[in-house]
């Protein structure tokens, strides 16, 4: 039988998302002791030393919220029918965030560098080998050359994926956006002037019949309002926006998005 520590090591090594819930205080339940644990991975209980199906069920339900928020938290659980009052610490082991940079132009270079400093798993993609290559992106985890929309279609996109559309023109951004707009990505940002973005969204409404709340997901124009001038500054404003979305901050986005 494998151990809890082994299961936790696997979570880290496989880059999985999990929650380790630990009971740290018990009131009015003699069958349960502080230190009892429950490991949840992929929405399932992988290991537990709690031994009370009702409590495990309550912990499993509660864990989803914290995993989604990527925030560890101490929670009081009032169990019905003599189950007592529990203090449970939900430790979130989030999947490492993945940043997909679509378009390997002049903003992508500082963007990839900075994203590596911030511990993202970074994928950069372009259809031009002269741009999407190792010399230009020595820090990237993956450099992919090919049709950008097609690659996005084949890519695994999860709630810990952040996507930045900064191709060389709307002709390319639009088909890429169409591929990912219904995905689970936590963040989709697209570069471009307000006028072009407006036209793009109008086509999405008219031709694709894409719902308003779906279009509203897209952060466009991309980035935080910090009056950028250089490519590196634009990269910084994009990553600032991504951190804001990830952590739940309040800084002003150029697109007017709150959080």
């Amino acid at each position: 039988m494998s151990s809890l520590s082994e299961a936790l090591v696997q979570v880290v090594e496989q880059g999985a998302a999990a929650v380790l819930a630990t009971v740290i205080e018990v009131e009015g339940n003699d069958r349960l002791e502080a230190g009892a644990k429950c490991l949840i991975r992929d929405g399932q209980v992988r290991a537990e030393t709690i031994g009370d199906a009702g409590v495990v069920e309550a912990i499993l339900r509660e864990s989803a919220v914290h995993l989604q928020a990527e925030k560890s938290k101490l929670v009081s659980l009032n169990m019905p029918a003599g189950g007592g009052k529990l203090e449970v610490f939900f430790e979130v082991l989030p999947a490492p965030p993945k940043l997909v940079v679509v378009g390997a132009g002049h903003i992508a270079v500082p963007l990839v560098k900075m994203a590596k400093v911030l511990d993202f798993h970074v994928i950069v993609t372009d259809d031009r080998l002269a741009y999407a290559n190792r010399e230009r992106f020595p820090d990237a985890d993956e450099v992919l050359v090919g049709d950008m929309a097609q690659m996005l279609k084949e890519m695994s996109i999860t709630p810990s994926t952040y996507i930045v559309l900064i191709t060389r023109g709307h002709k390319y951004d639009e088909p890429c956006l169409r591929e990912i707009i219904h995905s689970q990505a936590k963040y989709i940002g697209m570069i471009g002037s307000r006028r072009r973005i407006k036209a793009c969204f109008q086509r999405f409404r008219d031709e694709e019949k894409i719902a308003e709340e779906v279009i509203d997901r897209v952060y466009a124009p991309i980035g935080l309002d910090i009056a950028t001038e250089t490519p590196a500054e634009i990269a910084l404003s994009i990553l600032g926006e991504i951190i804001k979305v990830r952590r739940g901050g309040k800084a002003a986005s150029l697109s007017g998005h709150q959080n």
Binding site: M1, S3, L4, S5, G35, V45, A47, E48, T49
Partner: peptide, 19 residues
């Protein structure tokens, strides 16, 4: 801050019925 200090040892670690 509140710090929870939890003992871990081998037998305890293997108790949880891992599925």
């Amino acid at each position: 801050m509140n710090v929870f200090i939890d003992p871990w040892w081998k037998e305890r670690d293997q108790e949880g019925s891992v599925r």
